[in-house]
Amino acid sequence: MTTITFGKAINEGLRRALADDDTVVLMGEDIGTLGGVFRITDGLKAEFGEHRVVDTPLSEAGIVGTAVGLAYRGFRPVVEIQFDGFVYPAFDQIVAQVAKLHYRSRGTVRMPMVIRIPFGGGIGAAEHHSESPEAYFTHTAGLRVIACSNPADAYVMIRQAIASDDPVVFLEPKRRYHVKGEVDLEANLADARPMGVATTVAAGDDVTLVTYGALVQTAKDAATAAAEDDVSIEVIDLRSLAPVDYATIEASVRRTGRLVVAHEAGEQGGVGAEIAASITERCFDFLEAAPVRVTGHDIPYPPAKLEQYHLPDLDRILDGVDRALGRPNSLSEVDA
């Protein structure tokens, strides 16, 4: 075990993938000489060369579109979109080409592409640098959508995503890039938990709290705080947003009878809406209360000095838990 940061874990995962498979090629803006604006690809160009770690012109559609051509040729491109809010120029290539080519080609053309996107807020950034665009991609058939939450997972899951024969949108919670954790750099993919499987990161009996990305740590902190109040929260790190590991959530909700889903993205049409609906369909008879969503507001991402009023934090998550448990909460009078 080695203690490294989240960002370094992805760097090591990319290094390992580049070393293990000659068809892996990294593409993106500033990822070569600079090592990426977050230094996630630091040192990789020097180690593997400019044809394996490619600084591209500033064109997201160009990056993803040329990666499609490389995948057609048998490469496994790993593209970096510099910030979440910059992915939209590539949206057509992702939705109409990357996601659909396996289907459109009747299985003859594979798109083993990873689209890495640092996502989410909490770093006091400028506009378009703090978004959570995951629902656009979870709504798109043909894509897998992954959000990792800790260094150990990041190291394994980036390699699993690269090894996948399906295209993966790989969301990295940028505000956790500097968090340290223990990582087993010798970890073998064959023994690793599949990236499509969720992880129960805190056991509990009273309510199931599902989240992903940066909010996993917030949810664990909420569980710790609630325990002092004799409320037992089970926290599930979703890890895969598409497809969702409903078996894990279902098993938990059948015990707790209560579900809270939290994410930074807005509420409407979000991952939480999908999970709330699906769990209601699957576990209706086990539910003691309506599922609760704790999400960002349905607003454009606000200026940095307002983001604390937008992002779900520990207290808002606990308020959601209180709603699920029927304890006094911010909406008690409204509901009454």
């Binding site: 579109g65 040329t66 990666a67 499609v68 995948a71 040729r73 490469f75 290539q93 080409q97």
Partner: peptide
Amino acid sequence: GAQSLHAVGWAMGA
């Protein structure tokens, strides 16, 4: 026009 980028990516790989 989408395929023009695919042609370029393929050629870069070549």
